[in-house]
């Protein structure tokens, strides 16, 4: 079975075949995006609303561009400045928007499960652009596409995910996706930034960078959120950089052809050394951004197809 769902709320419900289907289609959109005429009209006539309850520049731009390249009418709503401030509940906001007949809602929300809740209340397709510490499915898919293109495969790789895993939805979605595709996953973080019970996900857990990075094919760094500093999760930025920041010395433990990834935005000198981030032989960080647009185009294209299918089935 490929990808037949109405919504894309997380990686958890997806089958490996569904993941591959999205990535295969995304590959073709990478080609489209590299042409001078980047326009397709598979979403022509459809309305896409981007609802971001949490600040975002990069992800929102990526979704907006993806929708526009596919011919959708795209509207951005900065929810932080709007009715939420007036005390409207999430469900009321959803019902209000639903009455405007959008075809696709792209939603980011600071609380885990909020996008699931919203999806239960609307008729259109909902795409999770990140909910709390829960999931960020398009990020995991774009990471998967980047790895597949760089390594030629997406299975039996040794992949290290390093940094603030406890607070990261990117880490969760990646752990689930890479696990489904049968990779070996290593998690590296100080114990204060490691979620409990994580070993039960089938991951190897390390507290030491040198040990954790030994012979890995892929190094995924996570952003250290500055607000964590106040929470006392780590003693200081400089100690964190010393023990968990990726530099040339630590990267030596990985395979010679290991790639370095980061979901951005980066804190240079906190979790990653600037030279590593800019090393065109190791860093695929810019590729990730490029794959992001393609993956989002593929996901939205498939959601629109699934919806059309369901509506015609409903009519028949």
């Amino acid at each position: 079975m490929g990808f037949t769902d109405k919504h894309l709320l997380g990686i958890e419900p997806l089958s490996p075949a569904a993941i591959s289907e999205i990535l295969d289609l995304a590959d073709s959109y990478v080609d489209l995006n590299r042409r001078s005429n980047k326009h397709s009209d598979v979403l022509a006539g459809l309305t896409q609303i981007n609802m971001f309850f949490e600040n975002s520049t990069r992800t929102q731009a990526s979704f907006e561009l993806a929708g526009k390249r596919l011919g959708a009418d795209v509207m951005n709503m900065a929810m932080q400045a709007s009715s939420i401030k007036k005390g409207e509940t999430l469900i009321d906001t959803a019902l209000t928007l639903n009455a405007m007949h959008p075809d696709l809602l792209v939603v980011r929300h600071p609380q885990s499960g909020a996008v699931d809740l919203l999806a239960q209340k609307v008729n259109c397709s909902v795409l999770n652009a990140g909910d709390g510490r829960h999931e960020h499915p398009t990020q995991a898919l774009l990471d998967a596409l980047t790895i597949r293109r760089a390594k030629g495969r997406l299975h039996r790789l040794s992949i290290a995910i390093c940094g603030d895993i406890a607070h990261s939805r990117v880490a969760r979605s990646n752990i689930i996706l890479l696990g489904k595709m049968e990779n070996r996953i290593r998690l590296i973080a100080p114990p204060t930034l490691m979620p409990s019970g994580i070993a039960e996900f089938g991951c190897e857990v390390y507290e030491d960078m040198h040990q954790g990075l030994q012979d890995v094919d892929v190094v995924m760094m996570l952003r250290l959120q500055r607000e964590r500093m106040d929470g006392g999760f780590i003693p200081s930025e400089r100690e964190y950089y010393h023990r968990y920041g990726l530099d040339a010395q630590k990267l030596k433990a990985a395979k010679d052809d290991a790639i370095v990834m980061h979901p951005g935005p980066m804190n240079r000198g906190v979790e990653i050394d600037g030279d590593i981030a800019d090393d065109i032989n190791r860093s695929v960080i810019q590729d990730q951004v490029e794959m992001g647009v393609a993956v989002r185009m593929a996901a939205m294209d498939l959601l629109a197809r699934n919806r059309k299918m369901q509506m015609s089935e409903g009519a028949a």
């Binding site: 885990s112 709390g132 510490r133 829960h134 999931e135 939805r169 969760r172 409990s196 019970g197 994580i198």
Partner: peptide, 15 residues
């Protein structure tokens, strides 16, 4: 409650 379920759902948890 902290553990696999809370981590999977990304919920703040207590030991």
């Amino acid at each position: 409650t902290s553990g696999k379920f809370a981590s999977l759902r990304g919920l703040p948890a207590v030991s």
